[in-house]
Write a protein that binds this DNA or RNA. Structure first.
Length: 273
DNA sequence: CACTCACCCTGTGCGC
DNA sequence: TGCGCACAGGGTGAGT
């Protein structure tokens, strides 16, 4: 579900609504998330601690909690919601934090692909580095030159390069399609034979598409919602994603869908060269 | 080292 | 209406 813009919006929501609140009780309904660390230790570390700032890198969320940092990855269907203490919980809710002031932070995840992990805050920088993420287009310097360094010696397609979190952090299947459409570059083009001006356009559109999506509150396709439960609006502005068979808004050709790397790739054969 | 594929889960929507 | 299959926004590890 969520790509960089959706994750940024979740982080903003956490900072707006739960930062500074104390955790009074922790309910872990599905301990499967805690591979490696014990459930008791997890609950003990969180209980009674105050929630600090939330941040992100790529699609990873980091929430400072006492001496620790709660690291979350929403993967496909993970949702963080702030609710009233007595509000009913959504189906597939796996973790609940009961907060001072009558609020509750719920983590639900239909497909259980998400990840929740407690890491030490002290060498957090080290830990984040160990994730091996590539540059984050909105947090790091990211221009055509940087992208060329990353991509120009690789045989794989530019689409798969954008989707590889070790090369570029934060882009997922939806925004990769929109970025390459706006840059006018075919998703199948190998990194080898992309020209400097094309790298320039791709890097610029990456920043612009991701920023625009944040302004629109993200894309709500199936599961994704803001922490307040509000829907995003960006899905109304997609130009190629999910639009196979309809007319290209730029050249009028028919938008195609093909399978690439096990996932749907959407593009216009008329104006993406 | 670099790349591809199956897999982790559940729900939905489509064709028959 | 019901059944079976394909597919869904992501990442990892095994195999080539």
């Amino acid at each position: 579900m969520p790509e960089l813009p959706e994750v940024q919006i979740v982080v903003n929501g956490l900072n707006q609504f739960v930062c500074g609140l104390r955790i009074e009780e922790v309910l872990l309904h599905w301990p499967g998330y805690l591979s490696g660390s014990s459930q008791k230790k997890f609950i003990k570390a969180l209980s009674g601690s105050k929630i600090g700032r939330a941040s992100r890198r790529g699609k990873y969320i980091f929430i400072e909690i006492g001496q620790h940092t709660l690291q979350l990855h929403l993967r496909m269907t993970g949702v963080l919601r702030i609710r009233e203490m007595d509000e009913e919980m959504a189906p597939h809710t796996h973790l609940q934090l009961f907060l001072a002031g009558g609020k509750r932070l719920d983590f639900s995840d239909v497909r259980k692909f998400g990840r929740v992990q407690l890491v030490d805050s002290e060498p957090l920088r080290e830990h984040v580095l160990s994730l091996g993420l590539g540059p984050d287009p909105l947090l790091d310097e990211f221009d055509g030159e940087r992208l060329a360094e990353i991509a120009s010696h690789r045989s794989k397609s530019i689409r798969n390069i954008l989707l590889d979190q070790k090369l570029v952090a934060g882009v997922g299947n939806i925004y990769a399609a929109e970025i390459l459409f706006r840059a006018g570059v075919s998703p199948q083009r190998s990194g080898f034979n992309i020209e400097p001006d094309e790298f320039e356009r791709i890097a610029r559109e990456t920043r612009e598409v991701l920023s625009a999506a944040i302004v629109k509150g993200g894309s709500s396709i199936n599961d994704y919602l803001q922490v307040s439960g509000q829907q995003g609006e960006m899905q109304n502005y997609f130009q190629v994603y999910g639009r196979q068979g309809s007319e290209c808004p730029r050249c009028g050709d028919t938008i195609l869908k093909m399978k690439d790397g096990g996932r749907g790739s959407f593009y216009c054969p008329g104006c993406q060269k």
